[in-house]
Design a protein around this nucleic acid. Structure first.
Lengths: 353, 353
DNA sequence: TTGAAAGCGCTAACAT
DNA sequence: ATGTTAGCGCTTTCAA
């Protein structure tokens, strides 16, 4: 591997000049510049990023920590961020915390050890993630994305849950639904908390109360399935007896007296609920409407397709990149991006007469 | 940030001794070792990975390039690899080539520029990805994963397509299906090519021919939807008229004379096909059986659930890690991991009488 | 077993 | 505008 020395020798200049000519950090004679470039070209010179990083204390790398990359929500985020950073010639060190606080803390350490220029993290816990993040934030700019920890004067970019969930509740109410229930993950992360709050507040605006206590489990499909089953069981629907793995048939419309609208904390849960209802033979949206959140790819092809809020990943990625380029000392930026309603078949089409 | 010098001073030894004591690269006096460790602890000393990398020419980082992280197949791979590398204290630089050859080549360059210790790549094109990979492979060990380029004496870890698809074909034939068709992506990548070949060979083993020419588009849901529509249209089914967005109802069983088994190149396509068939009112698996490949999370909750082949991500990740630790000079390792059949509702349950 | 010192490849003062 | 030189923080000969 040729070094800057080799280029300098071949071009007949000093290494400093080569550095300047190649990086453009200082003006350099036009002829010299060309000679240097030719020499570099000829030798197949490639910049040693490691040496540069050691010297400048900037690694042109940012670290990203997500709770679980195989949750289809996060790849959408990661993809948008990666694409955006690439535009600035910055690489992405991806870390998966596997929903484990220790792992999360360790990953933050390795990122700061590597002198990344910034960290984008979706903290897995609303309070317990705080210490590790605080420590990291003392060394390098940290942007929280999507989720955030409480009581930390940090920076955050995410979706506007308040806008999102009040729109969904308003929609269901406008379409005549009055018995709404909220199904989400445990309230151990900020997203779940914000969403649960907004749900209740929005209902209150309409003078309504939840039809049942919120069902809180995990952000995944199987929890949605289970929650649907519970709803059906709790409300003593006669059709629940036949919920075999092949689906419980469309026959025999008994009395379903449960909630007529299920607002889910994310699309994974909603897709599970949809499937659970279909297995129990309960018609969506006629008997029960279902809404999701995020608009992952599969929301479009469920049966019926899922009404949900689309997150604007690109906008969030832009905001993260912008923040990381700024001087972030002092204060804490909080950027909430409004999601967009995707009206599909899992909610009733028109208002009742 | 304290450096090794600070630790040396506090412990009253030389930097060399600190280095040895902390890394264990050479024996060090027991008492000295303890003193050094205490000093490091006390100062909150953290290793500067950049400096170490510059000196040792090893970065404890490996790069991974995938065609598109938002395709739910790849996160499963990335997650397994990331988890495995973490065990060895190695970090993952993730790159998304966005199905663009130029981007892929550029990403490979930045990875080699960063002196990663190895690269794991799923090449997006069966032939055109070769030059960039060859260049990278001259500088650093490269393992191809899942997909591979042709005519390159490189290393590869992936799924055993031959085993997988012949098992699927055998299954369908055993269940009485004779009119099979293959739906996949364009044959520009190795996976699609291998799978198409195996499909035809397996049919031939049973003395059969494809019921129709293979439908080749993209590895995504919308292509599956479109392919299903084409199959229905081409075979003049009377029910195709009513395929509105809300699903085409289960009424009116006309004559469906099309293929009775659709073997799909991956789960995304299969889920699209499933949905397309349901919209057209064609019963799965009674009228047409559908199989997928990969076993992504959503395969379990489609309606009906998808019969598919489960990939053993962890095994593949292990193999990659193992290969990267070996001396790979000379020869080319090719490791095919057999997938596991997941029998679900999209294929008929029992053999015909 | 330990220390002194060179140097990985680069950039940024500080000269000229 | 260009060159000289001193490191960034670490590891590793080489010598003791």
């Amino acid at each position: 591997m040729p070094t800057i020395q080799d280029v300098a020798k071949l071009a007949g200049v000093s290494t400093a000049t080569v550095s300047r000519a190649l990086s453009g950090s200082r003006p350099v004679g036009a002829g010299v510049k060309r000679r240097v470039q030719e020499a570099a070209e000829q030798l197949g010179y490639r910049h040693n990023v490691l040496a540069q990083a050691l010297r400048t204390q900037r690694s042109r790398t940012i670290g990203m920590v997500v709770p679980q990359i195989s949750n289809p929500f996060f790849p959408l985020l990661v993809e948008a961020v990666e694409r955006r950073l690439q535009q600035d010639g910055i690489d992405l060190l991806l870390c998966d915390s596997h929903y484990d606080l220790d792992v999360e803390a360790r990953r933050l350490r390795t990122l700061t050890d590597r002198h990344v220029d910034g960290i984008i993290i979706s903290p897995l816990h609303a309070t317990d993630s705080a210490p590790a993040i605080r420590t990291a934030a003392e060394l390098v700019p940290v942007i929280q994305i999507d989720r955030q920890v409480e009581g930390l004067a940090g920076h955050w970019v995410g979706v506007d849950d308040a806008v999102g969930f009040s729109q969904l509740v308003d929609l269901l109410v406008a379409r005549g639904r009055r018995r709404l229930v909220f199904v989400s993950s445990q309230l151990d992360n900020s997203s779940a908390r914000d969403r649960a709050q907004t749900f209740e507040k929005s209902l209150a605006r309409h003078g309504l109360e939840p039809a049942a206590p919120a069902l809180l489990g995990r952000f995944d499909v199987s929890w949605g399935l289970e929650a649907a089953q519970r709803l059906v069981d709790d409300f003593g629907d006669s059709r629940t007896s036949g919920h075999g793995p092949t689906g419980g048939g469309h026959g025999g419309y008994g009395v379903y007296g449960g909630p007529d609208g299920v607002v889910c904390g994310d699309d994974l849960i909603a897709l599970g609920v949809l499937r659970g209802m279909s297995r129990a033979g309960i018609a969506v949206p006629d008997e029960v409407a279902v809404t999701g959140f995020d608009d992952i790819a599969f929301a479009e092809i469920s049966d019926p397709p899922l009404t949900t809020m689309r997150q604007q990943w690109d906008v969030m990625a832009d905001e993260c990149a912008r923040l990381l380029k700024q001087d972030l000392t002092g204060g804490s930026r909080r950027i909430a991006v409004a999601p967009l309603l995707q009206l599909r078949g899992s909610t009733p089409r028109i208002a009742p007469a």
